[in-house]
């Protein structure tokens, strides 16, 4: 464990809690892509299966349970409690355009052709593209609530910190997880455009509205 990974996990947890707080306080999930949240729940469900038969550390166990719980609560809020505020018309990204390539790639590029590894690989590739429906929705509506931009900022920051963690682990323990690293780079690249808007607009107190 290193500081980049701890900060990354905390940034991820903060993002998830910001999203829940936004929905809880405003009693609305306007501007939130339910499809992205479904993909994140799928990422956690396929990656954290080892929760039941591999014990890594108490921290690892607790964080996995928190992520799983929060992601399902988020989905329950969007499609259950606050479904009247979910703007389905703007959440139109075709998930099959993500799931089919990700499943295909998981079968092609993996460390071992066994169910747990295929599921882990699927979850890594899926996480890289899971935010696309959300970014697509913002481009559809042309703007996003400020609290939503903070959610996206910490969500993007988490994997960027993981990149630093992998550099650190490579130099200190010759750790090199090629699938996670390449996928993490792609995932972070998808946020670059948003990061630019966030830093040049939101941090200057303006609302995030796309030109």
């Amino acid at each position: 464990m290193n500081v980049f990974r701890i900060l990354g996990d905390l940034s991820h947890l903060l993002a998830i809690l910001i999203l829940l707080a936004k929905m809880w306080r405003s009693k609305s999930c306007a501007g939130i892509s339910g499809k992205s949240q479904v993909l994140f729940a799928l990422v956690f469900s396929t990656r954290y299966l080892d929760l039941f038969f591999v014990f890594i550390s108490l921290y690892n166990l607790v964080m996995k349970v928190i992520y799983l719980l929060c992601s399902y609560i988020t989905i329950y809020m969007i499609y259950g409690k606050l479904r009247k505020t979910y703007d389905r018309e703007n959440d139109t990204f075709r998930l099959e355009f993500l799931l089919i390539p990700v499943i295909g790639l998981s079968f092609l590029e993996n460390y071992d052709f066994i169910p747990t590894e295929l599921l882990w690989t699927f979850s890594i590739y899926l996480e890289a593209v899971a935010i696309l429906p959300q970014l697509f929705m913002i481009s559809n509506t042309g703007e996003a609530e400020t609290i939503t931009t903070h959610y996206l900022f910490f969500l993007g920051l988490y994997r960027a910190l993981y990149l630093a963690n992998w550099i650190w682990r490579y130099h200190t323990e010759k750790f090199y997880d090629q699938i996670a690293i390449i996928s993490g780079v792609v995932q972070t690249i998808f946020y670059c455009d948003f990061f630019y808007l966030y830093i040049t607009k939101v941090l200057k107190g303006k609302k995030l509205s796309l030109p």
Binding site: R5, D9, H12, R47, D50, V54, I56, S57, N60, M63, K64, Y67, Y111, D112, I114, T116, E117, W120, Y162, N165, F175, Y176, D177, Q178, A180
Partner: peptide, 10 residues
């Protein structure tokens, strides 16, 4: 490369 089933990161 980490072997199968040895993924210690979240």
């Amino acid at each position: 490369e980490p072997g199968a089933g040895k993924h210690d990161e979240l």
